[in-house]
Amino acid sequence: MTTYKRPVSVLVVVYTSNLDVLLLERADYPGYWQSVTGSCEPGEDLRDTAIREVSEETGLDALQYALSDWQSQNVYEIYPHWRHRYPPGVTHNTEHVFGLQLPHRVDVQLAPGEHLNFEWLPWQDAANKVFSPSNRAAILQLPVLAQRPVK
């Protein structure tokens, strides 16, 4: 039986109190940088997905830091070369945006096979480096969104 991904995912912008942003370089597309992302598992709520993906991709325990749901969603077309991962006929994904504030830059433990490198950059530089338009938009909103109370 084929197990398909759900077309619901999270984007977690990991950042410091100084608004430095953690970026991860994709293993399957070297040179493509992004924040933490991942699809929801069946029966998993969005917050739990964000916590799991942060742990899997960086080794960080999101519960030790300030994780907040930015109450923002993006609907985007799934790249054709990734559509086989989703049920037949599914062409769009809904991405839910979270922020994870750390007190300062930390080294992370990358998921083998998923990411090649990590880098901390000032938010403006991080926004310019990511390949995803929705990731860029989230980072550009960081100065305002980081001021919201944690939910």
Results as ranks from 00 to 15, higher is better:
residue 34 Q to F: 06
residue 97 V to E: 03
residue 17 S to L: 13
residue 44 E to V: 08
residue 41 E to A: 15
residue 70 W to S: 03
residue 87 P to L: 07
residue 48 D to Q: 12
residue 90 V to P: 00
residue 120 W to N: 01
residue 28 D to H: 14
residue 100 L to C: 04
residue 23 L to H: 01
residue 42 P to W: 08
residue 50 A to N: 03
residue 99 G to T: 03
residue 124 Q to Y: 10
residue 47 R to W: 07
residue 114 E to A: 15
residue 96 H to L: 06
residue 66 A to W: 09
residue 91 T to V: 14
residue 88 P to I: 07
residue 56 E to N: 12
residue 62 A to P: 00
residue 51 I to E: 02
residue 110 L to F: 11
residue 26 R to A: 10
residue 79 Y to I: 13
residue 131 F to S: 12
residue 126 A to Y: 01
residue 75 V to C: 13
residue 109 Q to R: 13
residue 34 Q to E: 12
residue 62 A to I: 03
residue 108 V to R: 02
residue 89 G to I: 06
residue 136 R to Q: 15
residue 77 E to I: 10
residue 39 S to I: 06
residue 130 V to Q: 00
residue 66 A to G: 05
residue 32 Y to Q: 14
residue 22 L to Y: 00
residue 124 Q to I: 06
residue 93 N to M: 11
residue 111 A to P: 01
residue 83 R to Q: 15
residue 139 I to R: 00
residue 30 P to C: 10
residue 120 W to M: 03
residue 93 N to T: 12
residue 64 Q to T: 10
residue 41 E to M: 13
residue 51 I to S: 02
residue 22 L to M: 10
residue 100 L to Y: 01
residue 105 R to T: 13
residue 41 E to N: 14
residue 84 H to G: 05
residue 100 L to F: 03
residue 69 D to G: 08
residue 60 L to G: 02
residue 143 P to Y: 06
residue 55 S to G: 10
residue 63 L to N: 11
residue 57 E to K: 15
residue 20 D to G: 06
residue 85 R to F: 13
residue 114 E to C: 13
residue 90 V to G: 01
residue 43 G to L: 07
residue 56 E to K: 13
residue 51 I to Q: 01
residue 137 A to W: 08
residue 27 A to P: 04
residue 101 Q to R: 13
residue 120 W to F: 11
residue 17 S to W: 12
residue 79 Y to Q: 14
